[in-house]
């Protein structure tokens, strides 16, 4: 089914919001407002945007340390996310998690995790919960190409298929595990075909085309929701920035980067929308709206207080046992 125009506009808006949010993060990082490791999603916007648009609001999403986009698409407020990045008490995790650990269970965003592949058994466990309680839900788990070489990736695919659990593994293949090219880190780099080793369907999709991602995921989600078992989707994409803010990205050629920038998902969808008769001024209005939202989030974060000292010992455990 073709994606309705209103949905296409929403996809455009979310990609524009992610891009502008990440640009704001880079500025704030350079100014010293954000510390630690921060991984930007610029270039990969079509993957999270298209994939998450294909599931219901009460389906689970679980992510990695490159999690800003997924949280934004789950409609967590840019204010709460930016404040988290600034380490403020108004942040989505009260300033305890930072860039790599966004989480909002009320919006079924079950967290960002910073150990490569570590979130995958958790995704299988979420799906096991769904199956044991006969719920009408699926899990969408995001991972990178690098995670497909980790042991728990294989354990998780095996057990998800063994028990026919409702999980969609979305591999964001940006071709580099930090600085190492997938061709010299994976014996078999057709990642979607790794699913076949577990009798699981594996698909590949152009991760620079949000409509293609959306359409592919809609089909797959239907299959998984129907109880047919897990599926893996490999979305081929490219991150324009380094792995993290401290990575200059010297391992990639300018020619390669230029080639991918020509496939940029945002102008691509803009062009398609105008071809469908949309007035370009609508897109300008969306851009102004997201610019303002990000600026507002940065102002909010900067003016928010840091966590109080008492927070140091809060939330280590639920129960205290008086000890």
């Amino acid at each position: 089914m073709p994606v309705p125009l209103a949905d296409q506009l929403q996809l455009y808006r979310n990609m524009a919001l992610i891009r502008r949010f990440e640009e704001g993060v880079a500025e704030a990082y350079a100014e010293g407002f954000i510390g630690g490791f921060t991984h930007l999603y610029i270039g990969q916007e079509a993957v999270a945007t298209g994939a998450i648009s294909a599931i219901n609001h009460d389906d689970y999403v679980i992510g990695t340390y490159r999690d800003h986009a997924h949280a934004l698409v789950r409609e967590i407020s840019p204010r709460a996310l930016m404040a988290e990045l600034y380490g403020r008490v108004t942040g989505v995790c009260k300033g305890k998690g930072g860039s790599m650990h966004f989480c909002d269970p009320e919006r079924y965003f079950m967290g960002g995790y910073a150990i490569v592949g570590g979130n995958l058994p958790l995704a299988v466990g979420l799906a096991l919960s769904i199956q044991m309680r006969n719920e009408d839900r699926v899990v969408m788990a995001f991972l990178g190409d690098g995670a497909s070489n980790q042991g728990v990736f294989h354990e998780s695919l095996n057990m998800a298929k063994l028990w026919e659990l409702p999980v969609i593994f979305v591999v964001e293949n940006n071709f580099y595990g930090i600085a190492t090219d997938v061709r010299i880190s994976s014996a078999f780099n057709e990642i979607h075909r790794k699913a076949q080793g577990y009798g699981m369907p594996g698909h590949v999709v152009n991760g620079m085309d949000v409509i293609a991602v959306r359409e592919e995921c809609e089909e797959v989600v239907k299959y998984v929701r129907h109880g047919s078992g897990p599926v893996l989707i490999e979305a081929r994409c490219y991150r324009y920035q380094g792995h993290s803010m401290t990575d200059p990205g010297r391992y990639r050629s300018q020619a390669e980067a230029d080639l991918w920038r020509k496939r940029d998902p945002i102008p691509r969808l803009a062009k398609q929308l105008v071809q469908q008769g949309l007035d370009a001024s609508r897109l300008d209005a969306i851009q102004r709206e997201v610019n303002e939202a990000v600026q507002d989030a940065m102002r909010f974060a900067e003016s928010s207080p840091e966590p109080p000292d008492e927070a140091l010992y809060e939330d280590v455990y639920v129960e205290s046992y008086g000890a």
Binding site: M110, G125, L126, M132, V152
Partner: peptide
């Protein structure tokens, strides 16, 4: 066999799956 569940020999996944189930109400 759903509530007393045999698993493969995959300890990291056994614990990780238990975590995922625990965080969603089991």
């Amino acid at each position: 066999s759903r509530r007393v569940r045999d698993t493969p020999i995959a300890e990291a996944a056994i614990v990780g799956i238990a975590i995922g189930a625990a965080m969603s109400g089991m």
